[in-house]
Design a protein around this nucleic acid. Structure first.
Length: 278
DNA sequence: TCCCAGGCAAGGC
DNA sequence: GCCTTGCATGGG
């Protein structure tokens, strides 16, 4: 048994009890950072790589049931103080007050690197429902069977098929990107980089990975918060609440100037909020 | 029918 | 370097 110092978290052999207002499974899982979850009667199930958990409301908080409590403690970023983050970003811009109130309980997940990489290559110029469908087919056909369903495929499995396979599961013109990147990373991917800029440029050398996808991978799996994924929704936010015009990369730089080391958090609240308005 | 979706690569300047 | 275009697919 173990508890965090600022919120009440009790880690047990088969799960984690979370008593913290800054944890809401609906907002954590449905805010667009992860694609492989389901909801049944208010109870969420989530896969990460080959690990599985369910999250249910209990009288004094939420209970995460899993065989891998250590993994999901890390996955749900439970040793980070979101009270501090929310109050900080809320002071920066009035829109952030609305965004953090709407998306209360969002936390930035620490997801599997390869799952995040391939998921966000699929996400390019695509919509979330179809992204989820393509990933589901990918897992069903290439993932290992586990007691709770199919795991996300290993890099070996992803590299063992060609572009035609990815076309057959509906990946469209991203099929060649997936096949090419799978072979590249399977042949050994260098993780010795250090700075965010260094990781970014390395990721952007992979086919199907541009600045936006690289930012998502760094934010959702490599714990880099000094990034700001600029997609079609963030552009709408920027033009509505900050200023008109500017190119994508300029918008990214401006927002990182504004939010600094809290950029990744701010981005996720804004993305989720903007999509709710639409 | 056209537009949009968590964009990117390639080719032209 | 910046700008334009084509790209699979399904839903509104």
């Amino acid at each position: 048994m173990w508890s965090a110092f600022f919120i009440m978290i009790i880690k047990e052999e088969k799960g984690i009890l979370i008593k913290d207002t800054h944890f809401n499974p609906q907002h954590v899982l449905e805010c667009g950072q992860v694609f492989r979850y389901t909801c049944d009667n208010g109870e969420y199930s989530v896969f990460s790589a080959d690990k599985f958990a369910t999250v249910a409301k209990v009288s004094d908080g939420y209970y995460v049931s899993t065989d891998s409590p250590d993994y999901f403690f890390n996955y749900f970023d439970l040793d980070t103080d979101y009270d501090k983050i929310v109050s900080h970003v809320s002071q920066i811009s009035p829109i952030m007050q609305s965004a953090t109130q709407y998306g209360y309980g969002i936390r930035i997940l620490k997801q599997d690197f390869y799952e995040t990489l391939f998921s966000f290559i699929i996400s390019a110029n695509n919509n979330i429902k179809r992204i989820q469908l393509i990933i589901e087919r990918l897992c069903n056909q290439l993932g290992k069977t586990t007691p709770h369903g199919k795991a996300f495929p290993t890099v070996e499995a992803l590299a063992s098929v060609d572009a035609d396979f990815y076309r057959s599961i509906g990946a469209g013109y991203r099929s060649q990107y997936l096949a090419d990147t799978a072979k590249k990373v399977h042949n050994g991917y260098d993780f010795t980089f250090s700075s965010t800029a260094e990781i970014s440029s390395k990721l952007c050398k992979l086919l199907g990975v541009g600045q936006k996808v690289a930012d998502c991978v760094m934010l959702f799996s490599l714990m880099r918060k000094d990034v700001f994924p600029v997609d079609t929704w963030i552009k709408k936010v920027y033009h509505a609440y900050f200023e008109d015009g500017r190119r994508d990369n300029e918008i990214r730089q401006r927002l990182i100037e504004i939010f600094g080391e809290y950029s990744g958090y701010a981005q996720q609240y804004l993305f989720y909020y903007q999509r709710s308005i639409f």
